[in-house]
Simulated assay, not measured.
Amino acid sequence: MFAGMTMALLFYAIVPNGLALRPHYVSGNDIFAQAVRSLYRTDTPINVCPSIHVFNSVTLMLAYYRCRCFDAPRLRWMRPAAAVLCVSITLSTMLLKQHSVIDVVFGMLLAFALDGIAAEMQRAPQTTQRNRRQRQPEWL
């Protein structure tokens, strides 16, 4: 997650980007309209592609599905719950006009790419250790 967020921040520094999707005024005085106005004040629509919200959500969902500790019958419910939460976070960022579909796609691509690299790095040391054991002389 640290690597992905750092890469996104570096991309923002090199290629500043933003959105103009939000309405000028959010009508209503109910708690939801107030929450949206508060969100718009604190989370500006600049430096949005790739979406760090989506990157973090997808990365954690992939971790839940990859981790063997959730194979236990009493913990299996956590994997679909992580998927529902990931989809909910992704859709909410688009519905609240924090991110566009392009931001979401690039956030997901970044998560899948780094997950693939991390999985390959995990497999590589096991393979090299096995090869070293095979190459050792018999007297060791």
Rank of each mutant, 00 (worst) to 15 (best):
A119L: 11
N47V: 03
T128R: 13
L19C: 05
L95E: 09
Y25D: 03
S92R: 05
A33Q: 03
M121R: 13
L85F: 12
H99R: 04
K97W: 14
A33S: 13
L140G: 02
L110M: 15
G28R: 06
R76E: 09
R79W: 00
Y64T: 04
T42N: 11
Q98M: 10
M7N: 13
L96S: 03
P73Q: 08
M1A: 14
A13L: 15
M108Y: 01
Y12P: 05
T127G: 00
E120P: 00
V84R: 00
R41W: 08
T90L: 07
I52V: 15
L19A: 14
T42D: 11
L39K: 00
I89L: 10
N56K: 10
L114E: 04
F2P: 14
S100A: 13
V36I: 15
Y64W: 08
A82F: 05
E138P: 07
Q98S: 03
S38H: 10
A83F: 09
P80Q: 13
P45G: 09
P23M: 03
E120T: 12
A33K: 01
V54L: 01
L95S: 10
F70V: 07
L10T: 14
F11V: 14
G107S: 08
R68L: 06
A118D: 12
I14R: 12
S57N: 06
L95W: 15
G116P: 05
V54S: 01
T42Q: 10
M94P: 02
H53E: 06
R135K: 10
F2D: 15
R76V: 03
C69W: 14
L140C: 04
A111N: 03
S51G: 05
L75Y: 12
Q122E: 15
V87F: 08
V15C: 15
R133D: 09
N131H: 09
P73S: 14
M121W: 10
Y40M: 08
L109M: 14
C69P: 00
L109I: 07
I46G: 12
R37A: 02
S92P: 07
Q98F: 02
V101M: 15
I117P: 08
R123F: 00
H53K: 07
I89R: 05
L62Y: 03
T93S: 07
Q98C: 02
R68N: 09
P137E: 13
A3C: 12
Q134S: 13
R79Y: 05
F70L: 06
Q129W: 01
A8N: 13
L114W: 04
T42C: 03
C69Y: 14
M1G: 11
S51W: 10
S27W: 11
L110T: 04
P80K: 13
